[in-house]
Design a protein around this nucleic acid. Structure first.
Lengths: 198, 198, 198, 198
DNA sequence: TATGAATGAGGATTCATTCAT
DNA sequence: AATGAATGAATCCTCATTCAT
């Protein structure tokens, strides 16, 4: 009787080890052996559960985005009204569960690689579109159409900029700071909308 | 006697070739041979003018930041008043000379590598501090102290986020879009300052 | 599960291949690839079992000295009395098992490298001290103190000189010749001791 | 008017630089550039005055042996009688002018390389034959034929062994020690001859 | 004569991947 | 399912040699 779900266990094990390894050594110095060692497994195992290193990396990025998505969906579900939904988007992005050094680091590494690796590029585009959509929808409820689009774009840019900044581990920019920064921008943008509406 | 003054010529040649190569293949697939080939030189020459690949990469990033700095200094020199200076900072960041695909791509690759390479990390910190300082100074002239600091931080994040976005080559985000996005945010922030002041 | 216990087999295989390669091409033209080829293995394997080429070379020298030591220990164990022990030292040095062209050649190459490679220098010093100690002890039993020391020194020098000579592959100097040469010197020195004692 | 003898000046300059470089870095880490730098010249110069690196090395060894030969010839010329000639051979080998660390080091490096480089092998054989001849001739005057041959061989071995030992820079074996060691052996051998003759 | 820039072959080493066990 | 030994292509780097100046 084979252990049930062993496949999933191993896959998660390796994906988590990948995040830690990328965070610690950088993507360029992330080797299959280091990942396996971090996971406490042998090097050969990676090819049992993934189609090679590239696949493992892509699956890792997919897992990161999926975790973010699940968190966001839960928050949106609990949010009432456009402003609450907007805050939910920002909170999901900078919640402690997502905004850990190892994850932010990995995220940046994948972003830099995305233009050169189709599989990563696809994931990146999905994320970008999703984020913009998640911002535009509630913004349209409270702002004129063009302002909604522009605000979604600038908020999205600021979100990514905060991740970028946080990935540098200067220690002066954590999730709380990022949330404050983006919420402040949101408030400003909504204020303008209110004025224009009023 | 061999040709004199080739040092600068070759170094610039190789640095430019590095940008193009990183843009085209990604940092992970940027090899000394590819750089040399792009420059129309032999592989050995790289070690004649730089202390190996790592040094060439660091010098390339330094050159990028230096070019940006020089452009910015020129614009600041011509700017009159705090608002003009703020616009100068944004314009320098998104001017066509700086905001080309190959350069943006390279910039992102270095940013992702910076946490793992001391030489790159130093350059990144210099840039970060400089950008914040260049934003804070004029902002302090038109906003209350705490608002100036917060606005500088959020503007800086948005600038980096725009670079990040542009590096993805989706073709829907160029320098003009980035400039519009950040100028819009600046206007909002200044508007608030004016209200509070008034 | 992969084969167990290959470590020792492979290490010996590579060390022996190193001796042959150094003998055939000289240390300067001994490449990892040639060693691997001689061993019938791939180049990568060397770094699997040794910490690079330098380590393999050092381990090879260590193995040579260890083999010599083991042979000597066995002979000393069987030797009865100072003169037998002295002969044992010489016989061990020039026994066919130690005094083969490939080994002598390798030995000389390492000796020349020893002043420039700490790991080899250490091994060389161990050998030198050991040889002197092994000669002095029995000599002290049959000669005055100062004569014992002087004789040990000159015998050691002659031993090394014989190796040096044999490494040249002129074909006119084999283990038997070396043994005769050094035994002759020993007899002379002992003769003097006897006279002086008498 | 070209400088007279510039050729010889440069050649000696480079040969001396070669000795120093080999002594300092070992033959394996002796590069044309290092030699040129030590000589205060450019790398290209080596190919003006020598047929490449190999030729420079061979010429360096030749120069070493030639210096030794000239010194020996002078001493033999001044020597009166077989015993004086024998002492002259030993003194020439261990005179301060020959027995310097840099020279001994270089000598050993060449010895190790000789079996693999025809040009060096030839020089080594010339030296070996010459030394044996220089020892045998006077020994034949004071010893029976077979003893003369055997003593020449063992003295030659001891001489080489002393060089080998001295090349290790343990600091406990200089020219004086080597001379004492070999003179002691000579005295012993001659003593036997005398006894047998008497 | 002399330089040192430039070349490119060859070296050690790394690493994703395969496969016998 | 799992291991880790083994491979060999690919990378960075060194260095003897050439050559325009």
């Amino acid at each position: 009787m084979p252990k049930l779900g062993m496949q999933d266990v191993r896959r998660r094990q390796l994906i988590e080890a990948t995040c830690i390894t990328v965070h610690r050594y950088g993507l360029g110095d992330t080797t299959v052996q280091r990942i396996a060692q971090e996971a406490g497994l042998s090097t050969g195992i990676v090819h049992h559960y993934f189609n090679g290193k590239g696949d493992l990396l892509a699956q890792t990025m997919r897992a990161l985005l999926e975790d973010l998505r699940l968190d966001l969906v839960a928050r949106l579900h609990a949010a009432d009204g456009p402003q609450a939904r907007l805050r939910a988007v920002l909170q999901a992005n900078f919640a402690p569960s997502q905004f850990q050094p190892a994850l932010v680091s990995t995220w940046l590494a994948f972003w830099a690689e995305a233009p050169h690796v189709p599989a990563l590029g696809r994931l990146r585009r999905i994320y970008t579109r999703r984020t913009l959509a998640n911002l535009r929808a509630p913004l349209r409820a409270v702002l004129p159409a063009d302002a909604a689009v522009r605000t979604a774009t600038s908020l999205a840019a600021m979100i990514d900029g905060c991740w970028l900044r946080a990935a540098q581990a200067d220690g002066d920019f954590d999730g709380a700071a990022a949330l404050a920064c983006t919420l402040d921008h949101l408030e400003l943008a909504l204020g303008r909308g209110a004025v224009r509406r009023g």
